[in-house]
């Protein structure tokens, strides 16, 4: 299992990185943490002619907050999602999800930007971008643009990022006092890709759910928002009846893939159980 030969460049700025890609054309690939890319190269499933190492581009680093939005640089590591005080305060859902991402050594190296740009439907962070209503900042030859999460994830491993473009940062609306969040997943072993995972954000200024955002991983070709379940909760008190209706509504939201190991009915069932447990925990806590 040795990768095919490639050349390697290490740009210092976003502009240099974009240029390096443009020079190489479709045969180039960006690498940051590389925790998903390197296995694909070792397995020769991918064989770029040039690797553009963006790990030293300063513009892609750092976490900051302007009071409305939390900006998470694309190079922020999974481990930082758990440890960073700004993330813990303004996007606690990410801190809850982080320990479920693979194993410690992967979290020390993998980046949030890399995970979101890869858009693996079984990964935690892409789904959490949906639950957080985040926006992705993308740099290209024509400048930068921000794409909302709902428009960002398009199909299996397909996002709004065009070839050669670079994910610069994740922008997350800051969590307020009225927000409650929860995350959990069912994985066969600690750190495995989950059979199903779910992040929930509730805005609860009082006893009633003003807004619910529910996102699932491992239930389809992209991370999925559960709009019908959200609607079942909106305007309701978070009680057993509302939770039951949200669980039932998942049949309209999710159409999981069917395979012998994990039949579609199994995933839907587990999604319901998981949502019920998460909302139940939030009910107990509120």
């Amino acid at each position: 299992m040795k990768a095919r030969a490639f050349s390697y460049v290490r740009p210092a700025t976003v502009a240099e990185a974009l240029l390096a890609f443009a020079e190489a054309g479709e045969g180039a690939s960006y690498i940051a943490g590389g925790q998903s890319l390197v296995p694909a190269l070792a397995l020769r499933l991918q064989a770029p002619e040039r690797l553009i190492d963006i790990a030293h581009v300063a513009e892609l680093r750092g976490v900051s907050c302007d009071g409305e939005w939390l900006r998470i640089g694309a190079l922020t590591r999974h481990a930082d999602a758990h440890d960073d005080p700004l993330i813990a305060r303004y996007a606690p859902l990410l801190a809850l999800a982080a320990p479920h991402v693979a194993h410690p050594a992967i979290r020390n190296r993998g980046t949030l930007g890399g995970s979101v740009a890869l858009a693996d439907p079984a990964s935690e962070f892409p789904a959490m971008m949906l639950a957080l209503d985040a926006e992705m900042e993308i740099a290209g030859s024509a400048g930068t643009r921000r794409v909302p999460a709902t428009a960002f994830f398009q199909d299996l491993y397909q996002t709004a990022i065009e070839p050669g473009e670079l994910l610069v940062a994740l922008h997350v609306p800051v969590a307020r006092a009225e927000h409650r969040c929860a995350f959990d997943e069912f994985a066969r072993r600690r750190g495995d890709y989950a059979l199903v995972g779910c992040g929930v954000m509730l805005a609860m200024p009082g006893d009633v759910v003003a807004e619910a955002r529910i996102a699932f991983l491992s239930v389809g070709s992209t991370p999925m928002r559960a709009r019908a379940a959200e609607a079942a909760l909106a305007g309701q008190a978070l009680d057993a009846e509302a939770i039951r209706r949200a669980q039932a509504a998942l049949a309209d939201d999710l159409d999981p893939p069917d395979d012998e190991q994990v039949p579609a009915a199994m995933r839907l069932h587990l999604a319901r159980v998981l949502l019920g447990r998460l909302l139940g925990r939030m009910e107990m806590a509120s």
């Binding site: 066969r188 190991q261 009915a265 199994m266 069932h269």
Partner: peptide, 13 residues
């Protein structure tokens, strides 16, 4: 004994 097999055995799915 995988979760899928156990849920099938239990008649859940």
């Amino acid at each position: 004994m995988t979760p899928t097999r156990l849920l099938k055995a239990l008649g859940t799915i």
